[in-house]
Amino acid sequence: MYTVVAGIDESTDRAREIATEIVDIPMDASQVRVTLLHDFQDNPEGATVEQVASVRRAREILEEAGIEVSLSESSGRPADAILELADEEDADMIVVAGRKRTPTGKVLFGSVTQSVILGTERPVLVCSGREADD
């Protein structure tokens, strides 16, 4: 079984991009297991990962392709949560979607993608962070 951990934020466009890229991996879908992780930065209503629209969309795309999907949630630092889950699951790959940020923005606000890439020896697939035109 090929195990993938995918970090899903609030963006449905980025979630769709991540799920589509995973589906396009040239492997038998029945041999792929994906855990979608959403890190809650602010969750005053106590929402669960199942209630996040972007997670639901990614899950739909993956399940339609015949890929086994599980969900995970955390709160705190997204990059740390992704790396910890990848270690726990002994993931074969981590998938994230980048966002366009200026170099100054990365310094001031950090970059989850950059932190994940630098924080692991596992392969990391970085999908386009582009927003849909519609």
Results as ranks from 00 to 15, higher is better:
R77N: 14
D9H: 04
S70L: 09
L108M: 14
V124G: 08
V4H: 02
H38G: 06
E60C: 03
V124D: 08
A15W: 12
V112H: 00
K106D: 08
S111M: 08
I18Y: 06
I22A: 01
V49K: 08
V112D: 00
Q41P: 03
G110D: 11
E63A: 11
S128V: 10
R57W: 01
P103T: 11
E131T: 15
G119L: 10
Y2F: 15
S72A: 15
T102F: 12
V4K: 04
E88T: 15
V49M: 08
M1F: 09
D134C: 10
A91Q: 03
R77G: 02
A58L: 11
T3C: 09
Q31S: 14
D80Y: 00
A19W: 02
A86N: 03
R57A: 10
D39A: 13
F40H: 07
V107T: 13
V116G: 02
F109R: 10
D39C: 15
A53Q: 13
H38F: 13
V49I: 13
M27H: 09
A132H: 11
Q41H: 12
L118C: 00
L125D: 05
A29W: 00
P26N: 12
E60D: 15
R130F: 10
K106M: 14
H38S: 09
I94Q: 01
S111N: 08
R122C: 10
S128D: 06
Q41I: 13
L37N: 07
V23I: 08
H38M: 06
C127P: 02
Q31V: 13
I67H: 00
V55N: 05
R130W: 05
T35D: 04
D92R: 03
N43Q: 11
G129W: 09
G129T: 12
P44R: 04
D80S: 06
R16H: 05
T20Q: 12
I82E: 05
V107S: 02
I22L: 03
P103V: 14
G119M: 07
R101L: 13
E50I: 10
E73Y: 07
T120H: 05
M27R: 14
D133K: 12
A79K: 03
A53K: 14
K100A: 15
S128G: 11
A65C: 06
E60F: 05
G66T: 07
R101W: 05
G105Q: 14
F40W: 10
H38T: 11
P123M: 02
Q114Y: 06
G7A: 10
E45Y: 07
Q31G: 13
I22R: 00
E121T: 15
